[in-house]
Design a protein around this nucleic acid. Structure first.
Lengths: 334, 334
DNA sequence: TTGTAGGCGTTATCAG
DNA sequence: CTGATAACGCCTACAA
């Protein structure tokens, strides 16, 4: 059914190789005449080259895989958008897969994508498939790790300074007079969450504020509501809170609304993540914002370099977050 | 460098076809013995089948393309997520491309993806490449149109009842006593925007409220701020407003904040789109919500059926939106 | 039950 | 400048 090079060749009265030459723009040694003939034949027939066949021959598919932790984070969407833009500018396609932070899914996707011969992979790693990561790196397969670090893995990766950024945010709360500060994150299965919690603790320590176990919640989204309930039922509830990401923020909002806790007035709030409406909601919310676009760009560059066999340092590229102070931390506490 | 079937065959002491049999699970006519040998060889060598070669032979890549209008809409992200889930459950991959509502980009992506031999395409059409859509449909290439209708095109598509849903929202505003209602959309290049505006006008007409040109703004995002400025500088400014999608909503919020217009009190607001924080912000916002997940599912099913050569009606599947009434339209006007 | 041969649509090499 | 011819890695008759 589909038209192939052979059809074009026949119609133009030349050989397949000539058509191939034409398609690959190697006109140098081609007569004006045959060039026109081939061009006409292609147009007449509506011929479209078959990229699969080309890929088989060239061992290059011009496709990359992106395995994202959870696409429902605004940050992930932004990074994907940035990656996709970059690759498309370079005539490549991105296959985006959503691993849902599930190591099994991640493994399956990595295998699927490699079977499809993608030229490289950008992974938001769950951190659990260490052997698999290692084997890819060892064989020199192009990989860039994104957002998270993996213990024991040395690879080109693009991350942010989670610990320092959280420290800075907590210090901001402390400057506002807060002493009873809580942190809420998802389960501590992923490096970013650990680092953010660490930054929280380090900031308290440096300021000689005691660390209270009950102020640190790390649990899955669906039990976060009841944990927050517990937190604010304490005899001495916190006056400020750090939300570990945007989904946590949503739970906090939900809880605050239900419990009639006034954010910004009764409760200082900092959110670690990008939120499109952060400065527009009421009260506007103080956020730690990650440079998603630059990060996507950097990761894409790192991957493309590897694909093009350029040398790439297997090192972390660390981006800095920005603290946007807004109304949710406006009130000073004594 | 990569291990091929030939390597496995040699190692197992059998022929390539036997290995192929094994891989395709045609064990029936295979001795237990060779089966074990092949299995061992595959494991020893860490053989991974090459999907590109298989695709070339089978004329099926198990990949589909998704060309989305603008991924930065929450709704688009949700649909993509749903599509991606479905296809991955069916052992297929989705290539997501962001056309930015640009017909040229759209055309380029369609051609790129077809060259890559994707088994089918889900398109949020810009509506401008009519001939291209037609040629795909005529040749029976699997296509599902999503979100928007295209004049003159009969194709399987998945849309919502934009006109009726907007009418209902405007009626709600009228019930609240509003008579001076404005609508703000992006430029009227896309069917959804037209239909929403039409619904707005129809609702006014049915309620004998005059249609005022100055109350209808349709412009690109970047000049929306100044248009809103004009709107609210009118001698008789509106008391309520319909935002045509989530990005418009953002502009409205921005403007309201800057102008100190109190949404919900001074200005009734309905947003046509899915917004994650709609019920949590202050004031919570009345939205017309689209069933993104079901729509994704439906579109994916329609595409997969076509890919599997099942008959599919080239008709619109119309989903209903839901109006969630919240605080931004709480106040009654006289 | 297993092997041989040919083909899928390109590209690459090398004569002519 | 152009055309055979042989890959690329897998699948599928058909033969043995």
């Amino acid at each position: 059914m589909a038209i192939t090079m052979a059809d074009v060749a026949k119609r133009a009265g030349v050989s397949k190789s000539t058509v191939s030459q034409y398609l690959n723009k190697r006109y140098e040694y081609m007569s004006q005449e045959t060039r026109v003939k081939v061009e006409a034949a292609i147009n007449d027939l509506g011929y479209q080259p078959n990229h699969v066949a080309r890929s088989l021959k060239q061992k290059r598919t011009s496709m990359v895989g992106i395995i994202v932790g959870n696409i429902m984070h605004r940050y992930s969407t932004e990074v994907c958008r940035s990656l996709e833009d970059y690759f498309n500018e370079h005539e490549m396609n991105a296959i985006i897969c959503n691993a849902d932070n599930d190591p099994e899914k991640e493994r399956k996707y990595i295998e699927m994508l490699r079977a499809k011969q993608v030229d490289g992979l950008i992974i938001f790693p769950t951190g659990q498939n260490v052997e698999l990561y290692k084997s890819m790196l060892k064989t020199g397969y192009p990989v860039v790790l994104m957002d998270r670090k993996v213990k024991g893995i040395i690879a080109p990766s693009v991350v942010v300074n989670n610990r320092e950024a959280t420290m800075r945010a907590v210090e901001h709360l402390i400057e506002k007079g807060h002493k009873k500060i809580a942190i809420v994150t998802e389960s501590l299965t992923i490096s970013t969450r650990l680092e953010r919690k660490q930054g929280y603790m380090d900031a308290l320590k440096e300021n000689n504020i005691p660390i209270i176990e009950e102020y640190m919640i790390s649990t899955e989204i669906k039990s976060m509501g009841s944990e927050l309930d517990n937190l604010f039922s304490l005899q001495d509830p916190p006056t400020a809170l750090v939300a570990g990401n945007d989904l946590v923020f949503l739970e906090v909002l939900k809880f605050a609304k239900a419990s009639r806790i006034k954010i910004g007035e009764q409760l200082g709030l900092v959110v670690f993540d990008n939120i499109p409406f952060a400065d527009l909601v009421n009260p506007s919310v103080t956020t730690i914002s990650q440079p998603s676009q630059e990060m996507g760009l950097k990761a894409a560059e790192l991957l493309l370099k590897q694909i093009n066999k350029e040398e790439v340092n297997p090192k972390d590229t660390v981006f800095s977050c920005e603290l946007f102070i807004r109304e949710s931390t406006k009130t000073s506490f004594e």
